[in-house]
Design a protein around this nucleic acid. Sequence first.
RNA 1: GCGGGUGUGGUGUAGGGGUUAACACGUCUGGUUGUGGCCCAGAAGAUCGUGGGUUCAAAUCCCACCACUCGCCCCA
Length: 423
Amino acid sequence: MSGIQRATGMQDTLPDDWPYWDLVMNTATRLARDYGFDRIDIPILEYTELFERGVGTASDVFVQKEMYTIAEPNGKDLSLRPEFTAGVTRAFLENGMGSWSQPVKLFMFGPIFRRERPQAGRYRQHSQFNAEIMGEMDPASDIEVMMLAMNLYRELGYRGLAFQLNSTGCRACRPAYVAKLSAYLRQFEDQLGDVDKERLAKNPLRVLDSKAPGMDELLADAPHLVDHLCDDCADHFGELRQLLDALDQRYTVNFRLVRGLDYYEKTVFEVWAEGIGAQAALCGGGRYDLSPEIGGHSVPSVGFGSGVERIILGLKEAGIEPPAAVEPPVLIAHFGGVTKVAATQLAFRLRHAGIGTWVAFASGRRSMKSQMREADKRAVRYVLVLGESEIEKGVIAVRPMQGGEQTIVDSTQIVTWLKEAGC
RNA sequence: GCGGGUGUGGUGUAGGGGUUAACACGUCUGGUUGUGGCCCAGAAGAUCGUGGGUUCAAAUCCCACCACUCGCCCCA
């Protein structure tokens, strides 16, 4: 087609998709509230500097190439948020949440923007469900966040879910490990692809994440980060695993799980499901402390983000159907003129009474047959026929569309009648 | 930013140089006096992604671009 199209990587969410969105958002909200999380909304636009200092320290690619930035006359550029974490951390500090009852447990929904190449389950604008526990170091808080994600997918009907778990250590223990890993990888440098050679030079941890063929063999004897944790990180990880075991949760300690945003420390995790193209991860999360980066005191936090479009894609592939949207059970047919006026009045009377109602529109005359066809396509339960003769007698002809005899109902009784019929 | 695939009415497809671009589904109207689903009749709707080029002639051949799509990078 010609004319203006959607911008690259943007999606229209059509009416047929909304049952899925309702299902996901309602389930997530209910679970989050059961777990003691409160909803927060934060701006879609923030000063670019926030992301530069928050996310930028971890992933310069994000900030330099993947953010949508709007130049402002005063020089304080704004950017569409590429993730939630920097924004909630800012909101935490700005609203003095450090003086609320600790920890602060928040969840949020909303669009996220990243200027990357679209592919299956990945868009330039996508919506995330995020949950964060802020101001708490206890590994039990890691568990709550992880279980919120897992149970969300379970309740939605996903099968074959698995936790992928790792610890990325902390400032104290990670550098020594990275040195060991680099030394190991340099032995095989000539076997690495261009991309991995560059990673080895810039950020060796990311080589672990490589999808290049032959990496399994190459990394077979690579050192594992979990074997090189400091006491603090090792204790945290150990307790986390104990708790997962106590909850009978299956998980894979995946030494190659390295999150792209490496502001994470200690816990990192994903939940994997099969069949979403190359995007197996339904969510990604972990422990972080972004607050010092943006000028605050330490706020140890743990959270995750989950892409709603990706969740829905998986539901569709698994053949999981959401409850159908509730459509009006009644359509009013008329013959124009005074009957149109009466039909319009009746429609609003029914709607005020809480009965969903369609009215047949017609700028001129319109055959009963045409209106009945419309009623059939709209799958209503009753057609209320309102013509001259009905108006004269003060009645309405009620035609049941799913079988049964057409009946005459007194106009004053129509609401009661429909309610009793279950509308 | 890099690579592969694809681009014909709303949707799914057919047509592979020659006057009115076909089919199915969908949409709308009608099938006598005010009544659905089946059936019948009819209508609307595409300058064949865009722009160049070759040719007497291009939806059909060539080039470029764009979009969509799958994957890489990165990530939910």
